[in-house]
Nucleic acid binder design. Structure first.
Lengths: 270, 270
DNA sequence: ACTAAACATTGATCCAGATCAAAGTTAACT
DNA sequence: AGTTAACTTTGATCTGGATCAATGTTTAGT
């Protein structure tokens, strides 16, 4: 049996300062300079090119702009609980959030990691299907469901983009199923690091070989993500370090010496 | 390590007669009476009410009817391999197919079980992301990608329905992730039986308590589905039988005595 | 009815990863 | 700089499910 404490235990203990995670350059800059968190309009929006609105033209964007509003959450805060009324649909603008499914006895499985541009909620549903939690400080671009759905019927670009995004999410979920069902602990951890490199589009330092980045989540969340325990994640990180595949510094910094070697450890052919 | 033989080994050995699976009444009737397999038009289509076309009005249906054609596969046959050109999109009309991801060394994970009305392929992709295999004899309603996509841009009902279906698939995949990552073998097997009852909409015999049905897949595919080995699936089926939760007859028939008891074993609250 | 291939069950043993239990680090706040 | 709570690592042991190895059962085709 594989019982993890419910994630809410961590959330209660969270405080603003202690949990600054460095997910991308924008956020680092925000944190360092204490810039007010959501002073942008659509024109200056950091996720304009890949969010739900990315196919929209100027007119459509204007209509969206009229009904949008921002909302922010501190690291560790619950954004929504499975079963909550889904009155608001939103996009992650900055920060990282988790999508989680839990069992009565506390066993928890992360089923999605939400990064900037990812969409929360689904038109046509009236309640949340998952627990959504802010992993780092998070800013959401929100729409009330009714006006958004009304707009959607008039704006094929929105449906098209939402469909693209849903199908991409489906592919990610299914790859993840292979990981959860068939990969070894070492392969799981290597796959996770590989995915971090891919999704964060981390800058490559030494001619596509060495990559240096900051993990956006704790060992506990990694374990929840990978269907493992904290101890196993820790041991596998240690093993990858001993085998010279990676180096670590502090809790969060990871240096991958040879991306190809890491890919081999992940067990995917391509 | 958890190596299963690649599914293709089974496919090669398959022959038509040996693999008649009883998925639903239509198919039983087809098999028994040797009715030609796809003599229907859209008006008489058994999946009209829930397939990709379910929101379409008469005009839209007529346009679809012009470009559709049928294709059938024998049990065990490969429908497509990951990486194949995705020139044809299709809906399952009768039979059962599997969506599979495999690793180089033969480890395989089923990532979707396709039943009548489920859609295969995705607009906007040019290759298959998964191996698709006919589990029973399968009939598909097919569309060439180009004319279908052309039609889709003019027919919001198609996009809307495809989006609904994709989002449903995503929820199924994520529930499955919880199963793969955190459930015990017994819970996995119970969850599978529960899902069979739910998705097949099997007729209830004794006042919502006893349900009697035919498994559409072998122990091997159940194992591939659940991230287990054949032996473990077999032992857990035996354990559920010993504990009086189910009875079995032959390889495929299952009698669930108490659906509520089965639900408890599956480990989901609702 | 018989045969052979496919499929399923059962038993013995093993091992990857869980669990239990400290001890060691890190970093926010005083 | 020191304190403390949160987080991580490391070690010892246990166990659920994998693996190895037969044996039993079903069913298509002769």
């Amino acid at each position: 049996m594989n019982v993890l404490l419910p994630y809410t235990r961590r959330a209660k203990a969270g405080s603003l300062k202690e949990s600054i995670f460095v997910n991308d350059l924008d956020q680092v800059v925000n944190n360092l300079t204490q810039v007010p968190k959501f002073k942008f309009d659509c024109a200056g929006c950091p996720i304009r090119d890949r969010a739900i609105c990315s196919l929209c033209d100027a007119d459509e964007l204007e209509a969206l702009e009229k009904i949008k509003f921002y909302k922010s959450f501190e690291a560790g805060q619950s954004i929504a609980i499975r079963g909550d009324d889904l009155t608001t649909l939103s996009s992650v603008v900055t920060g990282t959030a988790s999508l989680m499914r839990t069992m009565e006895d506390g066993r928890a499985q992360m089923v999605g990691l939400l990064l900037p541009s990812d969409f929360i909620g689904r038109p046509g549903r009236t309640t949340y299907s998952y627990d959504v939690t802010a992993v780092s400080d998070v800013t959401l671009c929100c729409f009330k469901r009714d006006p958004f759905e009304a707009l959607m019927t008039k704006t094929p670009h929105l449906i098209e983009r939402l469909m693209e995004m849903s199908l991409d999410d489906l592919d990610v979920a299914r790859d993840w199923m292979l990981l959860l069902g068939r990969k070894t602990a070492r392969e799981k951890v290597a796959s996770f690091l590989k995915m971090m490199i891919k999704r964060k589009s981390v800058q490559v330092v030494n001619g596509a070989r060495t990559v240096d980045f900051i993990l956006p989540i704790t060992r506990e969340l990694m374990a929840t993500y990978l269907g493992l325990t904290i101890e196993t994640v820790s041991r596998q990180m240690g093993a990858l370090r001993n085998d010279g595949i990676i180096d670590t510094e502090g809790k969060k910094r990871v240096i991958v010496h040879d991306v190809d070697a890491l890919n081999d450890e992940a067990g995917d052919k391509v």
